[in-house]
Every structure is written in C-alpha cells, then in structure tokens.
Simulated scan of single mutants.
Amino acid sequence: MGMHGDHDLGHTVAGWAGTTIAVTGCTVMAVAFAAGWSTGLWLGGAVVVLAALATWLLHLAGWGKATGPRPVARQHWRVRDTSARRGHPDCLGCRLAARGAATASGVTPVGSPAPAEPTPVGQPS
C-alpha cells in the first residue's frame, strides 16, 4: 500500500507511453513558442496528436485498462489486459474501434445464436 492508499490510478504501459510522448510534444511547442518558431509549434502539435494515437493503439493492444479499478493482482503497470480484444463496456476508445459495439447496442453478431424469446407474463415456460 502506497502513500495514497490502495487505489488503481491507471498506471499502464499505454498511459505512461502516451504521457511521455505528450510531454515531449508540449516541450517542443513551449520551446518553439519562446523561440518564435512557428514550424516548431506545428511539429509539437503533431507529436501531441501522435501521443493520443499511440495511447489508443496501445489500449487496443491490451496495454491499457478498462474504466474503474482493477483487482489488486492486476494493478501492476506491466500487466496486460486480456479483455481488451472483446472491448471494454462504456469505453469510447473501444467503441471507436468497433469493439464491443455489437453487444452494447443489442445487435447479435453474425454467427451467434439468436437470443431466446422472453416468455409472456402469466404463461408457463
């Protein structure tokens, strides 16, 4: 247990890599702004966009985490999330990649058995 208690703060490979790339891009933009170099501002902005893309791709590859706390055994930042391939519920990144959208919207994927029809109230099943 650390200084802040037993919290899952989301330390993941995707989070650390994305943050490092974004800080690099912001540093490039700050130096370019101080130097009056407009091309450097665009270059730093492109690096920040690259950070978002890299974080998203690492999340989809299983190096991120789903929303909410993880079990204590899975909180180490180098533990891969095996559920990422199916998509996380309520995850914008997974929805953008069309993962988990079929089950979330109620549509049955092709090749899956059709859900059973509910029995009307008052009739034997």
Rank of each mutant, 00 (worst) to 15 (best):
H76T: 09
D90M: 15
S105M: 02
D81P: 02
A46Y: 09
R80Q: 03
R80H: 07
R85I: 08
W63H: 00
G25P: 01
A98D: 15
V13R: 05
L60N: 11
G25K: 04
R95M: 04
R74M: 12
T24H: 02
S83I: 10
A51H: 01
T82V: 15
A98Q: 15
P109Q: 13
A22D: 01
R85T: 08
G93I: 07
S38M: 06
G18F: 12
H76Q: 14
A101Y: 04
V49W: 08
A32N: 07
T67D: 09
P89V: 11
A98L: 09
A114V: 11
G93T: 11
R80S: 03
R99V: 03
A84F: 00
A84G: 03
S105V: 02
A14I: 05
V72L: 12
H59P: 04
A98G: 13
P115M: 12
C91V: 00
A52I: 14
C26T: 01
T67M: 14
G68S: 08
V79P: 07
D90P: 02
G111W: 05
L53K: 05
T20Y: 06
G111A: 12
C91E: 13
F33M: 15
K65R: 13
H88Q: 09
H59C: 08
A73Q: 05
H88I: 03
A114E: 03
T108A: 14
R86N: 13
A116G: 01
D90F: 14
P115N: 13
P113S: 13
G68P: 08
V28C: 06
A116Q: 10
V110R: 10
T67K: 15
G40Y: 02
V48M: 06
A34W: 07
C26I: 04
G36P: 13
G15K: 13
W63L: 08
A30I: 06
T24A: 11
A51W: 01
V110T: 10
V107T: 09
R86T: 03
L60D: 11
T12Y: 10
L60T: 07
T20L: 09
A97E: 04
V72I: 13
A114H: 02
A102F: 01
L92N: 12
G36W: 05
A14T: 02
G15V: 00
R99N: 00
A73H: 03
A61P: 01
C94M: 04
W16G: 07
T12K: 09
A30Y: 09
A34V: 12
C94E: 05
R80L: 09
G68M: 08
H76Y: 07
T67H: 12
A54R: 03
S105R: 15
A114I: 09
G68Q: 06
L57P: 03
T55R: 03
R85K: 14
